[in-house]
Amino acid sequence: MTRSTISLATSAEDHRIARLAALAIGLALVDAAIPSPLPGVKPGLANIVVLLVLHRHGFAAAAWVSLLRVVAGSLILGSFLSPSFVLSLSGALASLLSLNLAYRLPARWFGPVSHSILAAIAHLAAQLGVVGLWLIPFSGLAYLAPFFAAAALLFGSVNGLVAARLLQADEAPLPAEEAQAARA
């Protein structure tokens, strides 16, 4: 292999974000492959990764992973800078904003499930806003909104549950895993 002449100084944090973003991009591709009865209704599996990152590494890392997923995912799917990219980006920005707020709710009562549902609804609201104001103004969108919202609740809950389950699983890691994580 040719030795690269460019070298960027990267930190362990960068590597972690890149690894997690790659995971999110992979799940975004799975998402895109799943057939959907209504255009725009997708499980949003990549958001599980974003939720995990939010809980483990904080908001900044989650924002990085989410936005990298949007940009790199669109490059892979060939939708970069297309209307569907704008929809994806606006949804991601809105759900990050709502996560930033929802994350501050008392953790005793509100867990990943709440964060996930709130993010899903913010995602939907931003997308409907973009569609209504820019892409298809005066469409019969209002009649479809409840179906989209029901999907947001369903998939938001499921993704939140998955994230909560995964977070619960690594709450008490074994010493061996801890050592391995430190080495990685």
């Binding site: 009562w109 867990g111 499930v113 549902i117 809950s157």
Partner: peptide, 10 residues
Amino acid sequence: LIKSGDWLTM
């Protein structure tokens, strides 16, 4: 996994 506030959100 579902906390009480999560039911409220749902």
